[in-house]
């Protein structure tokens, strides 16, 4: 599966469009991580627990989008966008969407 966030896959021709595919996920860390992040907020610096949370959510959202595209019979996703929002305290909502296509 080739994923790009430009309109085409360079050097390849798009032969078929399958429309929008998307994946989203909402994940939270356990309370211990939230408390650690609260403490870390005192001295500043990177909140590793939250960075990891963000990475896991993004990976899961991407996986879901790829699964959806695969079911449609696509072999590439172009014009991918990430979008984030917060629905609850300490939880990360990540939405990723793109256009599933088949390339030569």
């Amino acid at each position: 599966m080739i994923i790009t966030n430009i309109e085409t896959v360079p050097g390849k021709n798009i032969v078929e469009h399958f429309g929008l595919v998307s994946g989203s996920t909402i994940r939270a860390k356990h309370v211990g991580r939230d408390i650690m992040a609260g403490l870390k907020n005192l001295v500043g610096g990177e909140l590793k627990g939250y960075t990891q949370l963000l990475q896991e959510s993004r990976q899961q959202a991407l996986d879901r989008m790829v699964d959806q595209a695969r079911q449609l019979g696509a072999n590439a996703i172009v014009n991918v966008r990430f979008s984030t929002s917060s629905v609850a305290q300490g939880a990360a909502e990540l939405y990723v969407y793109g256009t599933a296509v088949r390339i030569e």
Partner: peptide, 21 residues
């Protein structure tokens, strides 16, 4: 030119930074 490009793939990175008291 398009034929010179071998591959294209999505890359990403993230960071969560906080400031001190």
């Amino acid at each position: 030119p398009d034929d010179k490009i071998k591959s294209a793939e999505l890359v990403y990175g993230s960071a969560v930074i906080s400031i001190d008291y």
